[in-house]
Amino acid sequence: MIEIEDKIVSADLLRECFACDLGACRGICCVEGNAGAPLEASELGDLEAEYGRYKPYMTPEGIAAVEAQGFGVLDEEGDLTTPLVAGAECAYACRENGVTLCAIERAWRDGRTEFRKPVSCHLYPIRLVRFSNGTVGLNYHRWDVCAPARACGRKLGVPVYKALREPIVRRFGEEFYAALEAAESYLKNNN
């Protein structure tokens, strides 16, 4: 673990490799799991305000799930998450050429919305943990469905944090990302 600012960062984010390979995994991370993706309370307003802009990209089942369950739901542990279709697929999923993608992000890419997607989805496989003292932890979540991403990352030599530069900067800023780069350099030179 490495302490940067007021955050605790798993060194695995600097040592392990990762690069999404949608051709291999087909976006299964949006389909499988035991709960929806984590949401920040502030994102509920964005999801609701932008609904009309990304709704055309959603599946009919996803639309029905959102309209029945709301823009976010509490999971078994009381955490705010995205609603699911039939207890599995994220309600905000869509399909394109046999690949499951985020309908919100598709609308964003088409310039239809300012909201890209929930930050937890953008940051994945980084999962944030909030400690009782207010400190935020950044952990590397290893999921078997992401084995192709780990293989692709190793082949390309891309550490987890470098693969996720954009969402890390979105959530924590440029200075924090620069501190991650410095930490990686330190680890390489002192191990």
Rank of each mutant, 00 (worst) to 15 (best):
K155A: 14
A35R: 14
V169I: 08
A64S: 08
L80D: 05
L22M: 07
P60W: 05
V136Y: 05
C94E: 08
L180F: 10
G87E: 01
L74T: 09
A93P: 03
L84C: 03
Y161F: 15
P167S: 01
R130L: 13
R53H: 08
E5T: 09
C17V: 00
G70L: 06
F172V: 00
Y57L: 12
A88G: 14
L123C: 08
W143Q: 07
A151Q: 15
A35G: 08
I4D: 13
D110E: 15
R95Q: 12
A86T: 05
R171I: 04
A103N: 06
Y140T: 05
Y92M: 07
Y57K: 15
C20D: 02
A147L: 14
Y57W: 12
E67Q: 11
V99E: 02
G78S: 04
Y51P: 09
G137R: 02
L156Y: 04
T82C: 10
Q69E: 10
G78T: 02
L44W: 05
G45E: 14
E43L: 10
P38C: 00
E61R: 08
V9P: 00
A163T: 02
P125D: 03
L13P: 07
Y92P: 01
A179K: 15
V158L: 14
C94N: 11
Y177T: 05
S132I: 13
K162V: 08
A19K: 08
A151I: 07
P167M: 00
K117G: 02
C121S: 08
L101I: 06
D75R: 03
Y177R: 09
G111K: 02
A179P: 13
L44E: 10
G78W: 04
N190D: 09
L128V: 13
P38H: 00
G87F: 01
G27Y: 06
G27N: 07
A178Y: 06
R116Q: 11
N97L: 10
G78A: 02
G45A: 15
Y54W: 10
A93Y: 03
L22K: 01
G157M: 11
S185V: 10
H122K: 03
A151E: 15
A183Q: 12
V85W: 05
D79M: 09
D75N: 09
V99L: 02
T81D: 02
T82S: 13
E89C: 13
L156C: 04
G134I: 03
V136W: 04
V145R: 11
E67Y: 05
A88C: 08
A41G: 03
R171S: 02
D79P: 00
R127Y: 12
P56M: 03
